[in-house]
Design a protein around this nucleic acid. Structure first.
Lengths: 151, 151
DNA sequence: ATTAATACTTGACAAAAGCAAGTAATTAAT
DNA sequence: ATTAATTACTTGCTTTTGTCAAGTATTAAT
């Protein structure tokens, strides 16, 4: 297959890095940092989670995560209460406001994607999603678990 | 096609953001920040460029860019000299060391991609590159120029 | 019981990035 | 032609983001 195939993959990665960078800016304009948005997403996806659980996905510095959570609590998006089963840990949940904000971020994100593919007809849109699924499938073949990187 | 198609696209974006985040960490371990690496790439791609030209691609804060370039100059990777044709601007180039470092970053990146797809056979690897090309083609359909975002 | 590991916090600090004001050179406007 | 506006870049100041290390409390391991 040759080196030029890898170069094509790298070209895509550069392209997508840039595209995603623009996304990130847009998320930030929503008033939350990307990290905050990720945390909100995580807590939404798995209620009654803990900082350690969140960090298995986000892999931030523990101290930093602790502070960001603190900030989200002081902004009334999250609640934290000592776990009954493990008093070292704190159970984290979204507040009502937190759920509302999650919904906003979520629909905002959907709108953005929709607008970014607005020139595609529905056939092409489905094709795009299929291509993406296939890429993810191929890339995940390489990494049985968790350690997947692409560069 | 329905909302679930957009959700699939968003799922891929999340997946890829994470994958690219891991890439970034790896680049950083090379001793340069991602921003520095991008600048080095740009100067390599277009010699005799200027800060403004670089920033058309990278879209950083001007002041920040100015400082990063300064740092790269003090590390002997770049040179800067007043443009003869426009004395406001500075012509930027790689030094010999800069070229060497570019080559290192470049081959490192190729190696990383290769290792991340090492489980694919050559047929699948070509398929992957084709899928990526097609995605890029579809996404670029949406934006005649420069303003492409995907989220 | 003692030691080690886990969950989290806090203080101090460093790096990355953004904002705003400024200089000098060039281009556009009248 | 002179003034005004724009462009290219720099610098000081601040904020945001992230790291490191030390510490507390709790739980698990031996």
């Amino acid at each position: 297959m040759g080196l030029e195939t890898i170069d094509r993959i790298r070209a895509f990665n550069r392209y997508y890095v840039r595209a995603i960078g623009l996304l990130e800016n847009t998320v930030v304009k929503s008033g939350y940092t990307l990290t905050e948005a990720h945390i909100i997403n995580e807590v939404n996806a798995t209620p009654n989670t803990t900082a350690t659980e969140i960090n298995k996905k986000l892999k931030l510095d523990e101290g930093y995560l602790s502070r960001v959570i603190k900030k989200l609590i002081s902004n009334s998006l999250l609640t934290k209460s000592r776990s009954a089963t493990d008093k070292r840990a704190y159970v984290i949940n979204l507040t009502e406001k937190g759920r509302t904000e999650y919904q906003k971020l979520d629909s905002r994100s959907t709108e953005l994607v929709a607008s970014n593919i607005s020139n595609l007809d529905s056939k092409e849109t489905v094709e795009l999603a299929n291509l993406m699924d296939r890429i993810q499938f191929l890339l995940e073949k390489n990494t049985s678990l968790e350690k997947d990187i692409i560069s």
